[in-house]
Design a protein around this nucleic acid. Sequence first.
DNA 1: GTCTATAACGGGATAGAC
DNA 2: GTCTATCCCGTTATAGAC
Lengths: 203, 203
Amino acid sequence: MDTKHGSATRLKLMETARELFIAKGVDRVGVREIATKAGVNLSLMNYYFRSKENLLEEIFEQSIKDNGQVLRGILNEDLPLEEKIYKYVNTYIDILTEDPLLVPFVLSIIHRNAEQAPRLKAVHTLYNTETFSNQLKHEAEVGKIRKIDPEQFFISMISLILFPFAIKWLIGYRMTFTPGQMAKFLEDRREHVYDMLINSLRP
Amino acid sequence: MDTKHGSATRLKLMETARELFIAKGVDRVGVREIATKAGVNLSLMNYYFRSKENLLEEIFEQSIKDNGQVLRGILNEDLPLEEKIYKYVNTYIDILTEDPLLVPFVLSIIHRNAEQAPRLKAVHTLYNTETFSNQLKHEAEVGKIRKIDPEQFFISMISLILFPFAIKWLIGYRMTFTPGQMAKFLEDRREHVYDMLINSLRP
DNA sequence: GTCTATAACGGGATAGAC
DNA sequence: GTCTATCCCGTTATAGAC
């Protein structure tokens, strides 16, 4: 591929930027540094990605897209409800543990682009919950779980999973956690979140 | 007051900035615009607030401080657990409904300053949960509720309350909500969150 | 302590020539 | 696709007036 959207230069820039962002933090990395380290002229970089913001978006677009497919896949699998929730929660926390910058990044992008045209198209792949909603409705009709608004339940589920990663350092600071304790706290959330969701569904 | 931290000029700048930030979005407001509109010299503005970031912080510091006192107060009140949770959830959602920019702002500030020195001191006033933790432990010992990690429960509670406000427009976009439907969805969350928390505590 | 004026530096973004 | 020159913006610094 040698088109504008897939050239080696483009990929090189995204790789370099990603490494630098993770290593030093987005705000402490300049566009000139990225361009230099990638061996690319600054203006050319601006030719590919119109802005640093845009570059950032594209980098995470890919990550979200990949992970989104996995997560959406779980919601659509043919699994018992409890098992599905268990798998969803754990897979999601796996992903966030591996890429702890994901949540803050996405939130900051959401924040900056609020009220704007639908950007972050990939995020929508996270939100295909029809099968899951129907499953919840059906289980409620059969009396196996409490009657519940599926949309509210889904939002609650992702809130419980995602929000702690958004305020990670705040939690750590408040409880004076060492990095190890922080990791444990987030590990423990797997069970806590699962329990809370399941218990809230009991008739 | 005529000291550095309370002069009329200072307040004027904060007011002007706040209005502009809310109207146009933080990133679309320049420091020169704020200074001009407030009728203040740019250098003077930099004398009061060392940076735009700092100005932003101070604007929300006050709001968080006030609301934080109210919320912390509820957690420390002498109330039955269920009643306390009910009051906490509803008061919190009241606050966020009235000032919907609060969550995204605070999160973006947190994000930008992650790994930094303890800024946003006021946020800490939100997090004084000793009385509440003890109450949870006690109720569990008496067998009135399930045994539960109080820290995890508290984080879950604020996750359920706060996160939807952080991804508000995403929810709206996905479900193609009108502003009215959005408002209803967030209103409905009061009951949903309360129910989920209480049900998850049932023995 | 409060305020003005002005210059300069670094970083992101852009226009236009090649 | 590439590179130069340029602009805007946030920030810092200085020097001085009240």
